[in-house]
């Protein structure tokens, strides 16, 4: 109408005033439409576990793991998400209590998997370690795993899902070997040492979970099962995604896996860059304090994930229709 020469000038100006709004509406609509087309991730509604594992970089990586742990804990607190440490292995030496060798935290609020799923991957840190005399910047990394969490209450309330051998959540107790680290010997009244560690081995996949956080064997067993279930479900899901991705690679689409570097935290420049959404913020402190800047990054990643999911969906669709022809 705006371009139509016969249109009344007044009407034309009115219409062109509306145009930007309409365009914006249209954009929003199309984004919403895209979003609604993307299939919901099967774990989206679940609570999650976050596992932090320092990688290359020794002490620096271990320290950074504890920075990240704190970042997520504060984030949870300020967003009203219930979060609790399931296990945390710190360095045994004095003064090194904040060097994490491995940590698992549990975020109990439903939907946390969806919220945090974009955090999975390798987080890289660039800074000058306190011990570095020549002032050189070191680069180290921590990998973050995001796993679907099935707290015991959830398992008890949904026995069908958990007892169905075809479900991702199913673990056949027969496949799991339990080792109690109670020292060999007479046991019972003869011994009062606290040996509460539990090790579970999922025989078909060789997945091993050891838990020695608590003085309670019972609680270690419960946590170990929780982590085992989470790791197996995630692995099954990833295997399927991998298969799909392999087909898409032929179609020229690359995917990021759990080994890919997703984000860099640079101390000198006080900068955080997410390499997927390409967002860069110069507010390192606020990010590490789990503040709005972290939200901003997570939102940008969410959009990036959605666009990737959409791309994948289109390719799958095209492949399917090609096969039909």
């Amino acid at each position: 109408m705006v371009k139509e020469p016969s249109t009344d000038p007044e009407l034309r100006s009115l219409a062109s005033e509306d145009l930007p709004q309409a365009t914006r509406d249209l954009e929003a609509l199309s984004t919403n439409l895209k979003k609604s087309l993307i299939p919901v991730h099967p774990f989206a509604h679940l609570p999650c576990l976050l596992e932090l594992r320092p990688g290359a970089g020794g002490d620096e990586a271990a320290l950074f793991a504890s920075d990240l742990l704190r970042m997520y804990q504060v984030y949870c607190k300020s967003h009203g998400l219930q979060c609790k440490v399931l296990s945390i292995d710190t360095a045994p030496s004095v003064g090194a209590e904040d060097q994490i060798q491995e940590a698992v935290i549990e975020i109990l609020s439903p939907g946390s998997y969806e919220r945090f799923r974009g955090e999975a991957g390798v987080h890289r840190v660039q800074r000058v370690p306190a011990t570095e005399t020549k002032g050189r910047t070191h680069t180290s990394a921590v990998s973050v795993l995001v796993l679907p969490n099935f707290p015991n209450e959830v398992a008890q309330d949904n026995p069908n899902e958990f007892n169905d051998p075809n479900s991702d959540y199913y673990v056949n107790p027969q496949d799991v070997r339990t080792d109690t680290m109670r020292a060999s010997g007479a046991g019972g009244q003869h011994v009062n040492k606290t040996d509460s560690a539990i090790r579970l081995t999922h025989i078909p996949t060789g997945t091993v979970v050891s838990m020695q956080e608590s003085r309670s064997q019972h609680s270690n067993r419960t946590s170990a099962w929780q982590v085992l279930r989470a790791r197996l479900a995630q692995a099954r899901r990833e295997a399927r995604e991998e298969e799909m991705a392999a087909m898409r690679i032929n179609a020229g689409v690359k995917r990021t896996g759990r080994g890919d570097k997703i984000r860099t935290y640079n101390w000198q420049q006080q900068r955080v860059t997410d390499h997927r959404s390409a967002i860069t913020l110069n507010r390192l402190d606020d990010v590490l304090e789990g503040g709005n800047s972290l939200d901003e990054i997570m939102t940008s990643v969410k959009e990036w994930l959605a666009s990737k999911d959409l791309e994948a969906m289109i390719i799958d669709e095209e492949t399917a229709s090609k096969q039909k022809l």
Partner: peptide, 8 residues
């Protein structure tokens, strides 16, 4: 006596 894990 301290409770034992075997009793638990």
């Amino acid at each position: 006596l301290i409770p034992r894990p075997e009793t638990e």
